[in-house]
Amino acid sequence: MSPPSIETHELTKRFGKFTALDGLTLRLEGTKCVGFLGPNGAGKTTTLKLLTDMIFPSRGGCEINGISVQEDRKRALSAAGVLIESPEIYPSLTPQEALEMVADLRGVPPAERPERIRTVLSEVKMLEWAHQRVGRFSKGMKQRINIASALVHDPEVVILDEPSTGLDPRGMAEVRSIVRDLKRSQRLIFMSSHILSEVVDVCDEVALVDKGKLLFYDTLENVTTRFADGHGTVDVAFARPVALESVRPAIAGIPNVKDCTQLDPKRLRVRFEGGPDGQGRLLEALVGLHLGVIGVSESESALEEIYLRQISRGD
């Protein structure tokens, strides 16, 4: 069986004279999570709507698992779980009924439905609300049901349009956790977001669009290496509070360190050069300084810097 895939060919969408998406050609294949990044109005949601046949391309087309969405939306979407633009569920239905409807229309066998529905409701922490009417729910609760509905049939391909929209910080963390769990289940996840930390946290690959054009698509690691101009950034955590002034001379003395800033009393951000080798030398040197280093993580700011640089180039 071939792996799940999403493919677009010269996908273009114009609204009057405005080109929302301009010749997007993208091939996603395998089981992984691909972050679809871009500022507001970049063409992210337009792409996902084209992928789900909610709008129609001005030129080009797209396929899910080799089936043209434009020619046979029913077959193409049969393997996909979709969440686009925080949809509303019929207000008088309960989550249980809404998911039954989705499962029923998707052909999930009746014998499997109760367990599937229970599983996804549990996953989105809405099990205790299963029999309350959706019309009374908050935006965040509705979004959780929407996520559950995208997963109830155990899809191969999951298309999520800014899934943490409308959720509080705890809800956002839960969505990330759900996406991470989904990755373990041999799926292709294509997720748009403008929250960089979310992408860094859960995605393996990232595609950046701006003004309707694809700027790059690569693994997160390659992107940070390729676009970082030889520089890297790590966040260093300490066991106890450190003052930047007192440790700066020692850290600045490490040969490949370019810059050091304080994030909070127990964390510093260190910019360095030399790629992965340089990062290795930096870690060894940091530990050798005996400053109470308890952790070093790749900085979210690396992608942020690349993102901002790439976007500003297009301005």
Partner: peptide
């Protein structure tokens, strides 16, 4: 208007 269509149109239905 109510965005319920976004819920239905994500499903494999004509």
């Amino acid at each position: 208007q109510n965005k319920t269509g976004y819920f239905l149109m994500g499903l494999p239905v004509r």
